[in-house]
Amino acid sequence: MRLILVGPPGAGKGTQAARLVEKYGIPQLSTGDMLRAAVAAETPVGLQAKAVMDAGGLVSDDIVVGIIRDRIAEDDAKKGFILDGFPRTLAQAEALDDMLSENSLKLNAVIELRVDQTKLVGRIINRAEEAKAAGQPVRKDDDPEVFKDRLDAYNRDTAVVVPYYEKTGLLSVIDGMQAIDDVTASIESVLQGLDEKV
């Protein structure tokens, strides 16, 4: 099963992907995680990406596409995978289609977690304030200004992939403002039967 989870930062993609990993035994391919690992290892691509990520920006398509191409070729992704944080642009969506078709593969579903973005900003501000009050460091991603920049970048660049996948008939929209378990149940209803078709 090959899935894409789409939605703005803070929509709950990571939480839902973790549940899908557990249920279906396929890896979650988070470009953010892969890039953070590259940054921690101080690889050339990691060093290139670090400054951009620290500012809340998006790394170049070339860097991300290269990472994904290598990753989907690994053994644990042969049964399928969940893409989280990719594709982020139309160019990346087209590059993914090309990559998959070169390997005689295709996507099974694209799931958008649709959320109220004004409430999302409030949620992040609260999370940052709670971390400060507890004497914990605030993640760079949770700084309200950086988060707003990431949200702007999502709306400018990534939101365009939604109509792209809508045209293919692969898109399902889920209300991401529901309780976490309800979001999971909604996703499951979309995926029912898909695993039998793979």
Rank of each mutant, 00 (worst) to 15 (best):
L100T: 03
G7Q: 05
N155K: 11
L151S: 01
D195F: 06
D142V: 07
K132T: 12
G46P: 12
T89N: 09
A153L: 15
R71S: 01
F81D: 11
R71Q: 12
I72Q: 04
G32N: 10
Y154D: 14
D181N: 11
V45F: 11
R139C: 01
A17W: 06
P27H: 08
D98E: 13
G56F: 13
V198Y: 05
Y165V: 01
G176L: 05
V121W: 03
G57F: 01
I174M: 02
A17L: 05
P137N: 13
A95M: 07
A37I: 00
M99G: 03
A93C: 04
E42A: 13
I174D: 02
P137H: 01
T184E: 12
A40C: 11
Y164S: 09
N108S: 14
G25L: 05
R156V: 12
I68K: 04
K50T: 12
E166N: 10
V146H: 05
A37V: 00
V173K: 11
A17Q: 06
R150A: 09
Y164T: 13
V110Y: 03
G135V: 00
D75I: 00
N108G: 11
D143V: 14
D75V: 10
A95E: 08
L171M: 11
I72L: 08
D157L: 15
A91T: 15
L120R: 10
L5V: 10
G12K: 07
E129N: 12
F81H: 11
P137K: 11
T118K: 15
G169C: 09
G7V: 11
G12N: 06
G46T: 10
S189V: 10
G193R: 06
Q92Y: 00
A93E: 08
G46D: 11
G85F: 02
E94M: 07
D152F: 13
R127N: 02
K78P: 08
M1T: 13
P163M: 07
Q28P: 07
G14R: 03
V6K: 07
L5R: 08
N103L: 12
L151W: 07
A55L: 13
L83C: 09
K148W: 02
Q28K: 12
I67Y: 06
L47R: 14
D62Q: 15
A185N: 09
S186F: 04
R150Y: 03
E166I: 11
G135H: 02
M53T: 13
P27D: 07
V6D: 02
V6L: 15
L5D: 07
V190H: 04
V21N: 10
T184S: 12
S30Q: 08
A73C: 12
D76Q: 10
L100M: 04
T158K: 08
I68D: 10
